[in-house]
Design a protein around this nucleic acid. Structure first.
Lengths: 153, 153
DNA sequence: TGTGAATCATTCTGAGTGTGAACGATATCG
DNA sequence: CGATATCGTTCACACTCAGAATGATTCACA
């Protein structure tokens, strides 16, 4: 409502009114807060993402996980190293293919992931505090559709 | 999958169903696409953010802009350097305070920002393609409220 | 009016993050 | 068997960004 009389060229309200820009900046801010929240657990977002992936699929090789998360296999090594050091995941050689390291989430890993989830829910509450119940439902559905459009699982 | 503790379940669906997680991942994917789109213009997201800020406030010192964007002043130097090299911004010493470098968006800068906006709109269309008109309106409003909650301008 | 403190832009150094190439171990195919 | 591919790992490198040190300029104030 602010900028309407602008010319057809790209003025700021043009860009800042796009979903891309607003979703990107908001996502960055929210992720930043989450990053600070999980810091005390010795975790970073990618560690949490890895645990979430493991929780969903129970077991998987490092390469599969790397491909799923869109990171290099070499990075998956250090992520798994760190989580293994925390006792959150377990590395087991696949007997069928002894090149493979099969990762599984330990009890401690589930617990750790649970604490991350709890932190995320706290942030959620703060974030959607100004929304009506209808708006929250709509947000849920809209996020689902856009995630699909963006090629997310 | 029985979990002994009842306080918080560390289920994967627990974390991946939070707004924080979904907004964060979706924002990352979208920003990544935008990053690739503007690559051909010789720009990165922070350059675009700087241009958008300049377009909104016409002129500003580097420190003000750095504070507004939440980056270190030293980074603002290189961002401004790059945009100046592209002819998108102009550095002028403030006559009132000759320590200050006042940045302004040139005609070419407006044009460049316009092209970024156009690219973002293209991505927007693709992203919201599966949404009804009501859902798009709701998304707009929800993003506005959450951005406010997150402390964004 | 002179002098020290504060501020601005800049440069430089260092930490953190992630990719890609090289390597050894294992598996698979001819 | 023997050649080749694949998996996990290590290493070297690039990139990004923050923070300290620097020089120029302004401000506070005696």
């Amino acid at each position: 409502m602010s900028d309407v009389n602008g010319a057809a060229d790209g003025d700021s309200a043009g860009l800042t009114s796009t979903v891309v820009f607003r979703l990107g900046t908001l996502g960055a801010v929210v992720t930043d807060r989450f990053t600070r929240a999980i810091e005390e657990l010795g975790l970073k977002p990618k560690h949490v993402g890895l645990m979430a992936a493991l929780s969903r699929d129970a077991v998987a090789s490092q390469q599969e996980l790397a491909a799923r998360m869109g990171v290099a296999p070499s990075l998956m090594v250090s992520l798994a190293d760190h989580l293994e050091g925390l006792g959150a995941v377990q590395r087991v050689r696949d007997p069928q293919d002894r090149r493979r390291q099969v990762l599984t989430l330990t009890e401690e890993g589930h617990d750790l992931l649970g604490r991350c989830t709890s932190m995320a829910r706290t942030l959620d509450d703060e974030l959607v505090a100004g929304l009506t119940e209808d708006q929250r439902k709509s947000l849920d559905e809209v996020l689902r559709v856009m995630a699909g459009r963006a090629g997310l699982p």
